[in-house]
Nucleic acid binder design. Structure first.
Lengths: 250, 250
DNA sequence: CATAGCCTACTGGTCAGACCAGTGCACTAG
DNA sequence: CTAGTGCACTGGTCTGACCAGTAGGCTATG
């Protein structure tokens, strides 16, 4: 004690050093989306490693959604614009491995969506209000067209709200968690006996939420959006887990 | 139009098939944390591919945080328990690439933490209340010890609340976003001129939040926790972005 | 002259076989 | 019984090769 505090050294593998360098270049903006990396054979001379090592690094970068390579492409790997794909992937594994219940996922959506509405009520522009109007209009038309169209319009509405919140993290997490939830229940909703009634009720709820957002009443919009989501999903949540959802309703 | 709807075919590479199979085995529970994969040389015969292909698949699985391999280990790669490491990684790149502002991150924490408090006020057990008490006690002691100890105790408090919310997603996202935020500002807090005063004020706020949780007053706990976080971080948020944070305070 | 089609020089994906440094375990010498 | 030594195995890296795909230049054809 009192001597120098040594830190454990981790053996750093060659391909990791490559990943770090390329990652840094991308995140710092030195490499922009659309730009190309050198070919694998060029990279092996630049890093003075073998091609296998270069390739392992590229696999990692690809798994993180930073680059993409196509066989035969005369240019090297392409630097990608950020997409939440990697986030989505790890959240999906999280959901499966940790056995996340539908209740937890819906609860999380209630939290995110109501916060987005709270913020949107204060920060929305008129254009964004128009987008929400348009989305609800499409929901109305979709009652005749079928569940897929309805769901798409519904998604568009929530996306508009999320954008209006001006918080990219809220936006992206909303997107990711929603797609996981829809993957779990969309089949069951599409086959629900009283689909049309469900849709009409949902539309009415969305209209109320939008009215609150338009009026600038954030807390009301937040409360209504929680209620809307609860009503929409509660039938698919096991009865034992419903109290946890209701805990979010005043 | 009207003809069969063809989907774009993507060339599926050999290592991707391997990743899928192993991933499926892990997520379905056929492979449990702690178990070992066969050695790379075994895998190449099982999948009848070359070792490079096996290794590329392992790199991807490792990047996703599902397995870990150690040189010299007489067993194969180890299947890992889920950790939010991959989630953390992709959120960090998100933060850097998308240029997430501190304001957005803090705002997100306010949303998550207040929701966790809202839920905790209704769902907490006595044990969890005791944990929160203990964490605050450690915060008090840490005023003398230094910022690192204080921050650790602070984290412990918020973790206890997150656990009490009984929502793993809330718990994990709290953890991930917090570590990103702390990475951005902990240095500046540690060097703040009136550190001790800051800590004491934060402790008082935490005590108020805990009192509300103990009393079962969810909305109050939620409101207080938002205020607490706002007060703690507002000094590090550029003035122009503060209104967005205040939008979350009633 | 314009263009359809081929040729070539690359690309990434995969394979085979080799070497090295590290690890754990069985065996052995004390 | 223990301390030490090999050994058999691991993952990490390298070399060199082949294949199928792509793009762009070249050529032969109209």
């Amino acid at each position: 004690m009192g001597g120098p505090r040594f830190e454990p050294v981790r053996a750093v593998r060659a391909y990791e050093r490559i990943v770090e360098q390329v990652e840094e270049a991308i995140e710092s903006g030195a490499l922009c989306p659309g730009q190309r990396l050198p070919s694998e054979r060029d990279l092996m001379t630049q890093f003075s490693v073998s091609r296998s090592t270069v390739r392992e690094a590229l696999r990692v970068l690809q798994a993180r959604g930073l680059v993409r390579s196509r066989p035969g492409d005369p240019n090297g790997a392409e630097v990608l614009a950020f997409t939440p794909a990697a986030l989505h992937k790890s959240m999906t594994t999280l959901a499966r491995v940790e056995g996340l219940s539908l209740a937890e996922l819906v609860q999380f959506r209630m939290v995110l969506d109501s916060s987005a509405n709270l913020l949107a009520a204060r920060l929305r522009t008129d254009d964004q209000l128009a987008e929400m109007d348009a989305a609800i209009a499409r929901m109305r038309e979709a009652v005749e067209l079928g569940y897929d169209e309805f769901s798409a319009a519904d998604v568009a509405f929530h996306d508009a709200v999320a954008r209006a919140s001006r918080n990219k993290l809220v936006q992206i997490c909303t997107d990711v968690v929603r797609s996981i939830v829809l993957g779990l229940v969309s089949g069951r909703i599409a086959e629900a006996p009283d689909r049309a009634g469900l849709m009409r009720r949902s539309i009415r709820h969305h209209e109320e939420v939008l009215a609150a957002v338009r009026a600038g009443d954030g807390p009301l919009a937040a409360r209504l959006s929680r209620q809307t989501m609860y009503d929409y999903y509660v039938a698919y949540v096991p009865a034992g887990e419903r109290p946890a959802l209701r805990a979010l309703l005043e």
